[in-house]
């Protein structure tokens, strides 16, 4: 239950921040480039799964409990629904994109053409991307962690 060899542990420790940053990039640029909350969340969760494979599930379960992951996932879902209800409260309806066109924080809305990427254009969509990304990271990693832990317990008892 000590995971794999020292080479694999070292290499995965070095690689993990790059995977993490790349996943966060995909989440943050979901409204500009291909990607979004789900895809970036899947990338980050696969990086966490790499750590899980390298270090073993018991070590990872000692570092982070799946209860905390469930809390994170619920937090992401709560933020998502909260943003949707903001549209109901201050806009016209549920899932109304109420921040778009607000030129103070969220810049000018592009008309219809091929433009360069402005980061702060899409109103509530990047915030929803972050919420869904958090939800997908925590959810997928909780699934992988719990399944790996439960199947490693059986091998210990044998």
């Amino acid at each position: 239950m000590s995971g794999m060899s020292k080479i694999v542990k070292t290499i995965s420790s070095i690689t993990f921040p790059f995977v993490f940053i790349y996943g966060l990039y995909v989440i943050a640029h979901g409204h500009l480039t291909p990607g979004g909350g789900f895809q970036g969340g899947a990338i980050v969760a696969s990086g966490c799964a790499m750590i899980l494979v390298a270090y073993g599930s018991v070590w990872t379960m000692g570092k982070i409990k799946e209860k905390n992951l469930s809390i994170l996932e619920s937090l992401g879902g709560f933020c998502f629904i909260l943003l949707a209800f903001l549209g109901l409260g201050f806009g016209t309806g549920f899932f109304n994109n109420l921040f778009v066109g607000n030129e103070f924080l969220f810049g000018e809305t592009p008309k219809f053409n091929s433009v360069a990427a402005n980061f702060n254009t899409a109103g509530v969509i990047p915030l929803m991307n972050f919420a869904v990304g958090l939800k997908v990271i925590a959810g997928l990693f909780a699934i992988v962690l719990v399944m790996a832990y439960a199947s490693s317990i059986r091998e210990d008892e044998k």
Binding site: P34, I81, F112, I125, V132
Partner: peptide, 24 residues
């Protein structure tokens, strides 16, 4: 979509704005 939601990625604006209930 680009004029209404401000997002350059049309798929994201469909997922999070036009069909938000599906995402929910």
């Amino acid at each position: 979509a680009q004029n209404e939601t401000g997002a350059n990625n049309v798929v994201t604006s469909v997922v999070f704005d036009y069909r938000g209930f599906d995402t929910l």
